[in-house]
């Protein structure tokens, strides 16, 4: 078995910490830590959609904004949207949408803001985990929580939750988001180089890990709401 940089087993994620209700002003919020990666998500809404031309007459619009704060990385990252963050905001929205009932309240918007305050690989997946808990924390009806993690391959070994230098060493990096109850994959991306037949192992490990994250998400919501 290959020893990982931080001594983890291949199927072992970094220490995970999830806390619901971290921003008082927000309707729902959550903080999620995966090792040294920290994301905070806030949910506002459902509320009236402004600008009004973006209203949908028959449904709620889900609007996501993923952003890395300037001090989250070794080299300061420029504030404001980039091509990368725009794409991640889009896939994050598509990862969360299947969990929501968006055809119940017309002309409204649910805003999900994700700020990555510390980045050490896996920021989009950590952000989705936080957003999912924040949506539940806001009391928004959901089909299921969405759990998210990346898996990849280093050499012949499949590994989950790639961190630090591992991300550069992998032959492929597959971030997924998953709804454990219905076994639906809501985020699927990949870059690298992998035979089609090996993809199954990567996907399996990622979905299995998502089930563990799912438990922790539920625990965090329980701690906040079950007295």
């Amino acid at each position: 078995m290959v020893k990982r940089e931080d001594g983890r087993k291949p199927d072992e994620m970094r220490p995970i910490e999830i806390k619901a209700g971290v921003i008082k002003n927000a309707d729902g919020s959550a903080m999620v830590k995966f090792g040294k990666t920290i994301a905070i998500a806030a949910v506002y809404g459902p509320r009236a959609m402004h600008p009004r031309r973006m209203q949908e007459p028959d449904r709620t619009v889900l609007r996501c904004r993923y952003s890395m704060v300037p001090f989250s990385t070794t080299d300061r990252c420029r504030p404001g949207p980039s091509r990368r963050s725009t794409e991640i905001s889009k896939v994050t929205r598509e990862a969360l949408e299947p969990a929501l009932f968006l055809d119940e309240i017309p002309k409204t918007v649910i805003d999900v803001f994700i700020d990555v305050i510390a980045a050490d690989a896996g920021t989009r997946t950590t952000g989705i985990n936080a957003a999912s808990v924040a949506l539940a924390d806001a009391g928004i009806p959901m089909r299921d929580l969405v759990a998210s993690v990346a898996a990849g391959k280093i050499g012949k070994e499949v590994m989950v939750d790639l961190a630090g230098k591992e991300e550069e060493e992998t032959s492929c990096d597959v971030p997924i988001a998953y709804m454990p109850r219905s076994k639906q994959v809501t985020l699927l991306q990949m870059d690298g180089d992998i035979p089609v037949k090996d993809f199954n192992d990567v996907l399996k490990m990622a979905t299995k890990s998502c089930e563990q994250i799912y438990k922790k998400q539920k625990e965090a919501l329980g701690e906040r709401w079950i007295k």
Binding site: V91, Q184, V185, D191, D193, V196, T207
Partner: peptide, 19 residues
């Protein structure tokens, strides 16, 4: 024959659908 990039859009999928 190896795959080198994947991007999903839209609604969710099951594992067998992905394969």
């Amino acid at each position: 024959g190896n795959i080198c990039a994947v991007q999903k859009g839209g609604d969710s999928l099951t594992e067998s659908e992905i394969h």
